[in-house]
């Protein structure tokens, strides 16, 4: 078990001196999905931009595969190749009106030869399931399709770590499950380390191996989803909540005295627990 990214006491303040991150520490294990929970304005986006060198931390350090990251100008391209960021609003990321050309951008910037760029673009379009959209103008795509193209545009750089800011925001339920399945698939086939920011509590226990709670520019708590959801009061103090099903189990336990064990954050965990209780084991 090694950490693809380890962040130690990272601080960042805006140019006017307003602090945004006050000593953030967390680690994302290689090949795993790490969730960063946080309400609006908790500093998630700022944290991500620091990890990929668009912003330079004012203090602390970041380890990439155990080696400290250099934020010197000449080292930034390497950092940005290794750590890709998919932005929340795909319209901020897709700058070209042509899907194929937009996806090629990152690979062209790596200075790769043309055949290699084409190979990677094909592969990225294939993996994200948007090959059939290549001839369409960006403005004719649906929101979910734009998100996939945005992911393809980052995959084309073949990053070790992919950071996604609110990947499910603005999608319908089918779109949410499609995007999450895609991410799981990418992790399985490519072994990419995934970090995602979200406040969609219901997807966290299903897809995240580890979660951290970011609030007011610092990590409040962290652990497996099971551990974090066993302390609902911490979530609530930070404008978050339990997954719906875990909330139901909590009420059954607290109000009705049902002997629920564990947090039961997913439907299948709750089902198993209910069956156990019904059978009176």
């Amino acid at each position: 078990m090694s950490n693809a990214i380890e962040v130690q006491e990272l601080t960042y303040a805006y140019a006017d001196g307003t602090p945004a991150l006050n000593g953030v520490s967390f680690a994302a294990e290689t090949g795993k999905v790490t969730g960063i929970l946080g309400s609006n304005g908790a500093g998630k986006s700022t944290l991500f931009l620091n990890l990929n060198g668009v912003l330079t931390p004012t203090g602390g350090r970041v380890l990439l595969d155990g080696a400290p990251v250099s934020y010197r100008r000449q080292d930034l391209p390497k950092l940005r190749r290794k750590v890709g960021v998919v932005f929340q609003d795909p319209d901020d990321q897709l700058f070209s009106a042509d899907v194929y050309r937009d996806v090629s951008f990152g690979a062209v910037n790596l200075g790769l030869p043309e055949e290699e760029v084409r190979r990677r673009v094909e592969q990225a379009l294939e993996r994200t399931g948007v090959s059939h959209l290549r001839d369409k103008p960006t403005h004719a795509l649906s929101y979910g399709q734009k998100k996939r193209v945005a992911i393809a545009g980052v995959l084309v750089m073949e990053p070790d770590v992919m950071i996604l800011d609110e990947p499910t925001a603005g999608l319908d339920p089918q779109g949410v499950s499609d995007i999450m399945k895609l991410l799981r698939q990418l992790r399985q086939t490519l072994g990419i380390t995934i970090i995602l920011a979200t406040h969609d509590m219901d997807i966290v226990p299903l897809y995240c191996d580890r979660v951290y709670l970011l609030s007011g520019g610092r990590m409040v708590t962290g652990g497996t989803p099971e551990e974090v959801f066993s302390r609902p009061e911490v979530l609530r103090a930070n404008q978050l909540r339990l997954p719906r099903i875990a909330h139901l189990m909590e009420i059954l336990h607290r109000e009705d005295g049902v002997e629920v064990q564990g947090s039961c954050a997913t439907i299948s965990a709750a089902r198993k627990e209910i069956l156990r209780l019904l059978k009176g084991e």
Binding site: V85, F87, Q93, D98, Y100, S104, F105, V108, L110, G153
Partner: peptide, 25 residues
């Protein structure tokens, strides 16, 4: 505001002052 965000997104994909892309064949 969008301009600022677009610029960040471009930078994070390795933008160095030139919007070089490869068109389809």
């Amino acid at each position: 505001h969008r301009g600022n965000r677009v610029f960040s997104a471009l930078e994070s994909r390795g933008y160095t002052g030139c919007l070089a892309t490869l068109p389809g064949q």
